[in-house]
Amino acid sequence: MNNTVPLKVDQLSIRYHHKPILTDVSFAIPAGQTVAIIGPNGAGKSSLLKGIMGLTPIIQGQVEFFGKPLSEKRLTTAYVPQREEIDWDFPIDVMDVVLMGRHGQLKFWQRPRQADRELARAALQDLGMWEFRERQIAQLSGGQQQRVFLARALAQQASLYLMDEPFAGVDVATEKAIIELFKQLKAKGNTVVCVHHDLNTVREYFDYVLLINSRLIAAGPSTEVLTQENLNKTYGGRLSLLNDLTEQMYRSRLDNAHQDD
């Protein structure tokens, strides 16, 4: 559908205070594929997604969505945050959460219209959550909460989906529903990028893999990239000298001073 690259990241660096989280990450993702971001705990997987979506300040680098900056491609990009980031005691029901997905297209005073409700209904049905539409979100199981979040992203009618650990702590039914959703999205030529933590299922669920540990270790089709050597590099020894020196550089503000010459 889209000949352009749905997501291109160029020399992205993120730090937290002086601690380097990600350094010089560059990659381009092919359209119409499911992409996994893999790496050990604290490797910066979620930060990468957040940096891409402009939720975490990046210190350098560029992100292009279909060749354009994010501000021009908001409506074609849907983000699914981690389930733990939300207060699930919030007084709201399932339908209203899913309708939030439509708010990018609603003016500031507008309430969701009938057409928006139709899209929300279709999204809930796709994820098998339609019968829960009037349920309070506090009463859902973990897997059902995840499906509500996915339905909300689906209601956005985007063509690029960025998901932060959608498979974390979900039941079998939800896992199946997510896989089914991936198939549907791919059939429509949409692209899915997921932070993923289960190495056993990567090959099965994803076409393309990014291996990350503070920097990009490898990127490519899962059949090629998931070699023992690459995995050892990703999960094995930390590049401690590299990180220490980068931190020292940030502390000394050398990167700013250096630009003068």
Binding site: K50, M53, L55, Y79, D87, L106
Partner: peptide, 20 residues
């Protein structure tokens, strides 16, 4: 602004990604 206020109170980062 009820809808927008609720959206931001519920899920601030998500609201940001919608361009709100």
């Amino acid at each position: 602004f009820f809808e927008k206020f609720r959206l931001i109170a519920f899920n601030r980062t998500y609201a940001k990604t919608l361009g709100i």
